[in-house]
């Protein structure tokens, strides 16, 4: 009897879709191209969610892929490669926050994140999480973040809308973001 060793399910947690006949279980990567094609979008998304801009996300994603692929020996099991990619991404992101903003605290938090899966194509979950987060904030804090991040208002426009000075709007935004970070850590986990 043929015993299959090391065949790894591509979609952990159960695939709601029936398996189609001509789609093989991609258990093993045999070259860097396959690793790239399968994971570059997920790594980019993971990076973007931590740096918030496309230029840095591109640099981080590239650095993660290079660091991972340079040390990989093929063939390599899919789940090992993905775990390694995520682990490397945490290190590269922590380095980014340290080198760009001297931010030891954010870097440490990133390094201590629990193991996670690479994200799918939709950021619906992140959007829902952000909505929940905004819902937990006091009114003034929620309002300034909604105006800035959801409606794209400038600081001046947000200040006019809220009837405060620009300087006050900046302080409100700063305090609201700190509160959001605190809630994210303490309430949403």
């Amino acid at each position: 009897m043929l015993r299959v060793v090391g065949l790894i399910e591509l979609r952990p947690g159960g695939d709601p879709e029936p398996k189609i006949e001509n789609e093989p279980a991609a258990a093993i990567y045999t070259d860097w191209e396959s690793v790239y094609q399968d994971n570059v979008v997920g790594i980019y998304q993971l990076a973007f969610r931590r740096v918030g801009n496309a230029a840095d996300a591109e640099d981080v994603a590239e650095d993660v892929m290079i660091r991972t692929l340079k040390t990989l020996r093929f063939p390599a099991p899919v789940h090992n490669v993905r775990s390694y990619l995520v682990k490397t991404a945490k290190t590269v992101l922590a380095d980014h926050w340290r080198s760009h903003y001297s931010a030891q605290n954010v870097a440490l938090e990133l390094e201590q994140l629990p193991p996670q899966e690479l994200a799918g194509p939709s950021n619906t979950v992140a959007s829902e999480r952000a909505q929940r987060l905004l819902g937990l904030l006091p009114d003034q804090f929620r309002r300034v973040l909604e105006l800035r991040f959801l409606l794209g208002y400038s600081v001046r426009e947000a200040a006019n809308e809220m009837g405060v000075t620009e300087s006050n709007a900046r302080v409100l935004q700063f305090r609201a973001l700190r509160k959001a970070a605190e809630l994210e850590r303490e309430v949403l986990g």
Binding site: G52, Y101, A103, L145, F174, L177, R178, A181
Partner: peptide, 10 residues
């Protein structure tokens, strides 16, 4: 830094 990380997430 904490506020900036929250902004990136938003």
């Amino acid at each position: 830094a904490e506020a900036m990380a929250a902004a990136a997430g938003l």
